[in-house]
């Protein structure tokens, strides 16, 4: 039998490897809380997969073997704030795997990106806990024991601070000038760079095609440029937008999830472009700090329609 060397598990393994730079970068800036989130999410995801498999009377070894839950768990963990209470990653992951993936029939059947389902659910249900981004690890002065145990005794406002996006948003609403932070000074820029590195590796290994990231980044950057050119005092520069928040992660790791994306390459370009547009709109005029999860989920909804519009003739 002649068979391609690539299988679903190896595809997923490659994605896991591609998240390593961003993981290391997040740990460097935000400390071991990131790793704790990772552990919690992975453990919860595997437990949920096994649990649902038992309920559905399927062997859970097969479910684990495809590694898709692992990827969803890692992406979710890396988008959660690093000093969040312990139950949050568990709740978010359980929601992502059980409601977002397994209730639809498991691997390949979910219309929505499971990681984003978990993230959006957590963001709506626990907005305060979901905004606990420390400026950097050193600034919090917390130890891992404090993180895991005594969270209720801490004065959160003292240790957490707004991200650049938050600060820009607040300033915009209040009519103040935009915060003057240099890009390289905020951790998110370096994390974004790491996502780009991982994404380029995925492109090189042909795990993802260039269409969705290109569509997303181009439309996002164009939109940001237009508004920046119109009024630079009110709108952040396109570079600030690109290297803040989860834009790069969305472009290379979230929007490119093939299960919930359309199939045709033209449809993928448009799909990416619409996500870019929605991220900018939600970021700039919405009430949430970043729009990635909602933008991706909204376009997940549109994917079947795009599939219907572009048929054959790739």
């Amino acid at each position: 039998m002649i068979k391609a060397t690539r299988n679903t598990a190896s595809v997923m393994n490659t994605v896991v490897l591609a998240t390593i730079p961003a993981t290391l970068c997040l740990v460097w800036f935000y400390g071991p809380g990131v790793l704790l989130n990772l552990l919690l999410c992975i453990f919860t995801a595997l437990a949920c997969e096994a649990g649902v498999s038992v309920l559905r009377q399927r062997p859970f070894k097969h479910t684990w073997a495809d590694r898709s839950a692992l990827v969803a768990a890692i992406l979710l963990a890396l988008s959660l704030p690093p000093i969040t209470p312990l139950w949050l990653p568990i709740c978010a992951t359980a929601f992502a795997i059980v409601i977002g993936k397994q209730l639809y029939g498991g691997l390949g059947q979910n219309p929505f990106n499971p990681a984003m389902v978990g993230y959006a659910a957590a963001l709506i249900a626990f907005p305060r806990e979901m905004s606990l981004w420390p400026q950097t690890w050193g600034s919090t002065g917390l130890s891992i024991s404090e993180l895991s145990g005594g969270y209720s005794n801490l004065a959160w406002d003292a240790i957490s601070s707004a991200t650049l996006l938050d600060a820009s948003n607040t300033a915009l609403r209040a009519g103040h000038a935009l915060p003057s932070i240099e890009l390289w000074q905020q951790p998110a820029s370096w994390v974004a760079l790491c996502w780009i590195i991982g994404g380029c590796w995925l492109l090189y290994r042909q795990i993802i095609s260039w269409h969705i990231p290109a569509g997303l980044l181009v439309s996002f950057a164009l939109l940001a440029s237009v508004f920046y050119l119109v009024d630079p005092s009110r709108y952040s520069s396109p570079l600030t937008h690109l290297f803040s928040g989860a834009c790069m992660m969305a472009a290379f790791f979230i929007a490119t999830d093939p299960v919930s994306a359309p199939a045709h390459r033209h449809a993928r370009l448009l799909y990416g472009a619409c996500i870019g547009l929605l991220i900018y709109v939600i970021r700039t005029w919405g009430s949430f700090p970043d729009g990635v999860a909602f933008a991706v989920l909204l376009m997940n909804l549109a994917a079947p329609a795009l599939d219907h519009l572009w048929r054959g003739r790739v």
């Binding site: 039998m1 068979k3 391609a4 690539r6 299988n7 679903t8 595809v11 097969h62 495809d66 898709s68 498991g106 691997l107 390949g108 059947q109 795990i207 095609s209 093939p258 299960v259 994306a261 199939a263 045709h264 790739v314």
Partner: peptide, 16 residues
């Protein structure tokens, strides 16, 4: 071969 669910990766349409 152990058949898994389609993850719509699109390798097939690249090869068709």
């Amino acid at each position: 071969l152990n058949t898994l669910a389609c993850i719509r990766c699109g390798l097939c349409s690249d090869a068709c």
